[in-house]
Amino acid sequence: MTTMKNPNSSSSKLALLSHIKYEHLVAGISGGVTSTLILHPLDLIKIRFAVNDGRTATVPRYDGLSSAFVTIVKKEGFKGLYRGVTPNVWGSGSAWGFYFLFYNAIKTWIQGGNARTPLGPGLHMLAAAEAGILSLLMTNPIWVVKTRLCLQYSEEHIADNKRYKGMVDGLSKIYRTEGIRGLYRGFVPGMFGVSHGALQFMTYEEMKNRYNQYRNLPIDFKLTSVEYLTFAAISKLIAAVGTYPYQVVRARLQDQRGAYTGAWQCVRDTWRYEGFLGFYKGLKPNLARVVPATMITFLAYENVSHYLLNRTREMTLS
């Protein structure tokens, strides 16, 4: 049975640092950037659906996914579909990079350096949750800018100090007008979102492990592309449906038009005016984006990480 090491000992901390491998960072960034560039328009539409509470007059309303595409292109041009793409690329690339980096370091540390030691659902969720918290601390400001850029519909509705030309301009203006607190809007519901990653990674890892054990192969045995895609899709569907409400709350808190004083008020008002379904606004475009995005991300990550790790081993042996 695998046991947790004492996290207070200096030797344990040094052991954890020794398991940090740049290959996981590079592979995670590769997967996140690739999927974001392909699927950003769906992310933008999901955000606009999520913040549409039916009470804010300046928020555009779309009849459905296809209607949203047509309306945005007609009113904002094709580039309107890619509003906020720069911080999204930075955010998604860095978030996936850090997540895979931290997750694999923590997981390998728990395994005692033996990648073929099965952890079980509980420890997989623990490693994923810790990696999620660390990643969120580093990337939340980028997500705030990305959300607000996606919600810039027209010039007349936003004051100059709230209209951003890009990621750097957005970060500086938010810091000047709202301080550090502004850069970490949505952080609390984002913390609840750690459960999303923990559930997804636990499901993904357990499916891979059980599948390889069924075939009497080591749990770290490389799978085919179809197998990676299948496990990634199933794990994402389960996590997305189970934890989607926090994304609605987070997007509404990050929208500068919102009048919510905190996460609890947002939850209360959404339930009061929109009911249960209000917490699932934008779910359809979200699933249309996140499931293929996760499939692309995980496939790219698995192949790039296996390639880099094998190359590092060969260089070490030669």
Rank of each mutant, 00 (worst) to 15 (best):
G282H: 01
C150F: 01
G28E: 02
F69W: 12
T117F: 00
Y228T: 07
L81K: 03
G97E: 06
Q247W: 13
F187I: 11
W264T: 10
F192M: 15
L283A: 02
Y62E: 10
E76M: 15
A128T: 05
A27C: 05
E227D: 08
G120Y: 07
W109N: 00
E302R: 10
L134Q: 04
S94K: 11
F192E: 10
R148K: 00
L287T: 04
G64E: 08
Y153V: 14
L42E: 02
N88G: 15
Y82M: 05
D63V: 07
V267L: 12
P7H: 13
M202Y: 06
S318Q: 12
L151Q: 14
Y280H: 07
N6L: 01
G28P: 05
F78G: 02
Y99L: 12
L199D: 02
K208F: 08
S235L: 14
A263D: 02
L237T: 06
S11P: 03
A95E: 11
I38F: 13
I106V: 15
M295E: 02
R252T: 08
K13G: 01
L16A: 08
R61A: 15
H40L: 08
I45R: 02
L123I: 00
N140D: 15
L149V: 04
W109E: 02
V89L: 09
L299E: 11
M125H: 04
L134T: 03
T224Q: 10
Y246P: 00
H124M: 08
A293M: 04
A15M: 06
M138S: 09
A95P: 03
A300I: 14
V241F: 01
S30V: 11
N212W: 11
V70H: 08
L308I: 03
G77R: 10
